[in-house]
Simulated scan of single mutants.
Amino acid sequence: MSTTQAPAATVEVTAKDCNDNGTVFCPNPKMALWSNHPKVFIDLTHGGQGQCPYCGTAYKLKTGEVLHSGH
């Protein structure tokens, strides 16, 4: 019997989905309520991707998207 887990989801986001500081939050609004964990902010300013430390969901900018500074 195999005990491998399914890979965590990957969520592609646009620059408009990000906060002014280049972060998104997890759990995201599309996640089921039963799967909620404490809200964390995922920083996408370094390489355009990041991963939730709780559920493993990966967040990455869609190809061609560019983050703009809120300053």
Results as ranks from 00 to 15, higher is better:
M31Q: 15
L44W: 03
H71M: 04
P29S: 13
D20H: 14
N21Q: 09
L67G: 01
T45V: 06
G48P: 00
E12I: 03
G22K: 05
G47K: 03
S69F: 13
N19I: 03
L61T: 00
T3R: 11
H37F: 10
T23R: 08
T45C: 07
L44Q: 02
Q5L: 13
G56H: 06
T14R: 13
W34P: 01
H71F: 05
K60A: 09
L61D: 00
T57E: 02
P7A: 15
C55S: 01
N28G: 15
K62M: 12
N36F: 15
Y54L: 13
T45I: 04
N21Y: 11
P29F: 10
A8P: 11
P38Y: 10
M31E: 15
G56Y: 08
D43Y: 09
A58D: 07
P29D: 11
G48H: 00
L33V: 08
V13Y: 06
P38W: 09
T10K: 07
T10M: 06
N28V: 07
T23F: 09
W34N: 12
D20E: 15
L44F: 06
D20N: 15
W34L: 14
F25L: 13
C18E: 01
T63I: 10
E65G: 03
H37G: 07
W34S: 14
G50Y: 01
V13F: 04
E12P: 02
P53G: 03
D17C: 14
V13Q: 02
V11K: 14
P7C: 03
A32G: 10
F41K: 10
M31T: 13
M31H: 05
L33G: 00
S69V: 10
K62E: 04
G56V: 05
A9V: 10
P38S: 12
S69G: 07
K60P: 01
D43M: 11
L33T: 08
F25V: 09
T23V: 07
Q5T: 13
K39A: 09
A8G: 04
H46I: 12
K62Q: 12
S69L: 10
A6G: 00
V24R: 05
N21S: 14
N21V: 12
A6H: 02
N28M: 12
L44N: 03
L61E: 01
L44V: 07
P7G: 04
T4M: 12
T10P: 03
C26I: 06
H71Q: 08
G56F: 13
H37L: 06
G64D: 01
A8S: 15
I42Y: 04
N19W: 07
Y59W: 13
Y59A: 10
K60Q: 15
G70F: 07
T4W: 05
E65Q: 14
N28H: 15
T14N: 07
C55R: 00
L67Y: 04
M1D: 10
A9I: 09
C55Y: 04
K62P: 00
S35R: 15
T63V: 08
T63W: 04
T23C: 13
G70Y: 06
D17M: 13
E12S: 11
P38G: 09
G22W: 01
N21I: 11
H68W: 07
K60E: 09
T63E: 14
V13P: 00
A8E: 05
